[in-house]
Write a protein that binds this DNA or RNA. Structure first.
Length: 106
DNA sequence: TGGGTGACTAAGT
DNA sequence: CACTTAGCCACCC
């Protein structure tokens, strides 16, 4: 299952996500915009099927929260990469988009 | 060809 | 800050 889909949209998404440097993150909407689309949902769908081959944890929602049901898994990577995190008093946490948000030069 | 689904976003409560 | 509602886009049957 070495994801090598001939699908254009899928390949573009994987390419953008793979280009995100360590310690940085991008929102689903930003990834979609990077490939010239606004299908943030489609990006998430692609990640759910091919995320195994890309640093999916570097892709978060517009609120700074990681993919649903994968927050704990993403937290392990953030702590290991030194990604800036913001903790709330309620015990919840989120990625500091103001500092970790990555902007593709292309 | 048409309809339903989803690792989303933004706005309102 | 957290939850709910409506809107959008790409993919599968």
């Amino acid at each position: 299952m070495t994801a090598a889909p001939s699908d254009d949209f899928v390949s573009l998404v994987l390419e953008v996500v793979a280009d995100i440097p360590e310690g940085c993150v991008m929102t689903y909407g930003d990834v979609a915009a990077a490939i010239g689309s606004r299908a943030a949902r489609a990006v998430g769908t692609v990640m759910s099927h091919y995320g195994s081959d890309v640093p999916w944890w570097r892709v978060v929602r517009a609120s700074g929260h990681p993919a649903i049901d994968h927050e704990t898994r993403a937290l392990q990577h953030y702590r290991a990469e030194g990604t800036p995190l913001l903790w709330t008093r309620t015990g919840s946490w989120r990625v500091d988009l103001a500092t970790a948000r990555h902007v593709p030069t292309a």
